[in-house]
Measured scan of single mutants.
Amino acid sequence: MAAGGDHGSPDSYRSPLASRYASPEMCFVFSDRYKFRTWRQLWLWLAEAEQTLGLPITDEQIQEMKSNLENIDFKMAAEEEKRLRHDVMAHVHTFGHCCPKAAGIIHLGATSCYVGDNTDLIILRNALDLLLPKLARVISRLADFAKERASLPTLGFTHFQPAQLTTVGKRCCLWIQDLCMDLQNLKRVRDDLRFRGVKGTTGTQASFLQLFEGDDHKVEQLDKMVTEKAGFKRAFIITGQTYTRKVDIEVLSVLASLGASVHKICTDIRLLANLKEMEEPFEKQQIGSSAMPYKRNPMRSERCCSLARHLMTLVMDPLQTASVQWFERTLDDSANRRICLAEAFLTADTILNTLQNISEGLVVYPKVIERRIRQELPFMATENIIMAMVKAGGSRQDCHEKIRVLSQQAASVVKQEGGDNDLIERIQVDAYFSPIHSQLDHLLDPSSFTGRASQQVQRFLEEEVYPLLKPYESVMKVKAELCL
Rank of each mutant, 00 (worst) to 15 (best):
A2G: 08
D6M: 15
S9P: 11
P10F: 15
P10Q: 15
S15R: 11
P16Q: 15
R20M: 00
A22F: 07
S23F: 08
E25R: 13
C27R: 15
C27Q: 08
S31N: 00
D32L: 14
Y34H: 11
K35E: 07
T38D: 00
W39F: 14
Q41A: 10
Q41C: 13
L46M: 09
A47M: 05
E48K: 05
A49D: 01
A49R: 01
T52Q: 14
T52C: 14
L53I: 15
L55Y: 07
P56Q: 09
T58L: 13
D59G: 11
E60G: 12
E60S: 13
E60R: 11
I62D: 01
I62W: 06
I62Y: 06
I62C: 10
E64F: 07
M65G: 04
K66D: 09
N68C: 10
N71Q: 08
F74S: 14
K75M: 12
M76V: 15
E79T: 13
E80F: 07
E81V: 00
K82M: 12
R85A: 01
H86C: 00
V88D: 00
M89R: 00
H91Y: 07
H93K: 15
H97S: 10
C98H: 12
C98W: 09
C99W: 00
C99I: 10
P100V: 11
A102P: 05
A102H: 01
A102G: 09
G104A: 14
I106D: 00
I106K: 00
H107L: 04
L108R: 01
L108T: 12
G109W: 00
C113W: 01
Y114E: 06
V115K: 01
G116T: 15
D117F: 02
T119F: 08
L121I: 10
I122F: 12
L124W: 14
R125E: 01
N126V: 11
L128T: 13
L131V: 10
L131P: 04
L132I: 14
L135H: 09
V138E: 09
I139D: 03
L142K: 08
L142V: 10
A143C: 07
A143K: 04
F145S: 08
A146L: 01
A146S: 11
K147L: 12
K147V: 10
A150S: 12
S151T: 12
L152F: 07
L152S: 08
P153N: 05
G156C: 07
F157M: 09
F160I: 05
A163N: 03
A163S: 13
Q164Y: 04
G169F: 01
R171A: 01
C172L: 06
C173S: 11
W175E: 06
D178Q: 08
M181N: 09
M181S: 11
D182H: 00
D182Q: 02
L186N: 07
R188V: 05
R188S: 06
R190E: 08
D191I: 10
D191C: 10
L193S: 07
R196V: 08
R196A: 13
G197M: 00
G197Y: 02
V198T: 15
T201V: 09
G203E: 01
A206N: 12
S207K: 01
F212K: 05
D215H: 11
D216S: 10
Q221D: 14
G231E: 08
F232L: 13
F232T: 02
R234A: 13
F236W: 14
I237T: 09
T242R: 00
Y243D: 00
K246E: 02
V247G: 11
S253V: 11
A256H: 04
A256I: 00
L258I: 07
G259W: 01
A260F: 04
H263S: 10
I265E: 05
D268K: 01
I269H: 03
R270A: 01
L271E: 01
P281L: 08
E283V: 08
Q286T: 03
G288K: 03
S290V: 02
P293I: 04
Y294K: 01
K295E: 05
K295H: 01
S301N: 04
E302V: 00
C304T: 12
C304K: 05
C304L: 15
R309I: 04
R309Q: 04
H310K: 12
L311S: 03
M312Q: 10
T313E: 03
L314A: 12
V315A: 07
D317Y: 00
D317V: 06
D317C: 09
P318K: 01
Q320V: 07
S323W: 00
R329K: 05
T330D: 03
D332W: 03
D332A: 00
S334I: 02
A335T: 11
A335I: 03
A335Y: 04
I339F: 14
C340M: 10
F345I: 10
T347A: 14
D349Q: 08
I351L: 15
I351R: 01
I351A: 12
T354M: 15
E360R: 03
G361V: 06
V363R: 07
I369C: 12
R371I: 01
R372P: 05
E376W: 05
E376G: 03
L377V: 06
A381C: 07
I385W: 04
M387W: 03
A388V: 04
V390C: 11
G393I: 06
S395Y: 07
Q397M: 08
C399A: 15
C399H: 09
C399K: 04
H400W: 01
I403M: 11
V405F: 15
V405R: 14
V405I: 15
V405H: 12
L406E: 05
S407F: 04
A411F: 04
S412A: 11
E417S: 10
G418Y: 02
D420S: 06
I424R: 15
E425V: 08
I427P: 03
I427S: 05
F433L: 07
S434L: 11
S434K: 13
P435E: 09
H437Y: 09
H437D: 06
S447V: 12
S447Y: 15
S448P: 12
R452A: 14
A453L: 03
A453M: 02
V457F: 04
F460D: 01
F460G: 03
F460P: 01
E462I: 12
Y466G: 15
L468G: 09
L469T: 15
K470L: 13
K470P: 06
K470A: 14
E473L: 15
K477V: 15
C483Y: 07
